[in-house]
């Protein structure tokens, strides 16, 4: 589903954000990327989504490389949904308009069809009663649930989560994690960058540990948490758990 080969990305031509990163992600697989801050996890995710242009390497989505310079890519990239750390709901429109904007303008759905779909997803994330609120009136957890629903309205095959709970107050983390957990149970191919170790352990098929832009190990949660011989991963998990 996602095939990453020798991905490299530097910022300001100095810092190696990602160095020679390769990973093959199967359809329906759930991958978590963990590791210290600044290890390049988010950059990998942003490269997959086309928010950053890789310096080297190749990213195939469903066997195809997306050329983000061509206008056609705008529709192709919607096979992926992206959830941001800071939600990024459009501030100038209501929750419902946030959810229907792209289905109407990108997928060409009718207003009625898009609104029905939006309400279905808002119900699923427990936000149906907030459909006509502006983002500024919502709590962080509500914003993130609405943002997840907005991604789902594009009916993606892949979901990318970039630290979806890092900007939330502690008491709101759970409601967002519950929504993500439920999504995953439906078989969407998922990549999550997260600092929620227990969550990653519970939901992932594989966990990738990154440091200094490199993928140190990628294996089952059981292996990463209990069996790895890599001292750096052991130290890291000991500190955060």
């Amino acid at each position: 589903m996602i095939n990453i080969t020798s991905l490299s990305k530097t910022f300001n031509s100095k810092v190696h954000a990602v160095a020679d990163f390769s990973l093959h992600i199967n359809k329906g697989e759930v991958i978590s990327l963990i590791g210290p801050s600044g290890s390049g996890k988010s950059t990998v995710l942003r490269c997959i989504a086309g928010l950053e242009q890789p310096d080297k390497g190749q990213i195939l989505i469903k066997g195809k490389e997306i050329n983000y310079k061509s206008p056609a890519s705008q529709k192709e990239r919607t096979v992926m949904g992206f959830v941001f750390q800071h939600f990024n709901l459009f501030n100038n429109m209501t929750v419902l308009d946030n959810l229907t904007l792209a289905p109407i303008n990108v997928l060409g759905k009718s207003k009625q069809e898009a609104e029905e779909l939006a309400m279905t997803y808002l119900k699923r994330v427990g936000m149906a009663d907030k459909a006509n609120e502006y983002p500024a009136k919502l709590s962080g957890g509500q914003k993130q649930r609405a943002a997840i629903a907005r991604s789902l309205c594009m009916q993606p095959e892949i979901m990318l989560f970039d630290e979806p709970t890092s900007a939330l107050d502690p008491e709101m983390v759970k409601e967002v994690l519950n929504v993500i957990r439920e999504l995953i149970s439906e078989g969407l191919t998922t990549v999550i960058v997260t600092h929620e170790m227990n969550f990653a352990r519970e939901i992932s098929d594989r966990i990738g540990f990154m440091e200094n832009g490199q993928l140190i190990e990628c294996n089952t949660p059981e292996y990463i948490f209990n069996q790895t011989q890599n001292q750096r991963i052991r130290d890291f998990l000991e500190k955060v758990l």
Partner: peptide, 22 residues
């Protein structure tokens, strides 16, 4: 905010749609 541009990009809006609507 940069995030508003990026969210519009990931949702597949064209440059023109992104600018005029968001």
């Amino acid at each position: 905010d940069r995030g508003q541009f990026e969210a519009a990009d990931t949702l597949g809006l064209t440059y023109r749609q992104k600018m005029t609507m968001v």
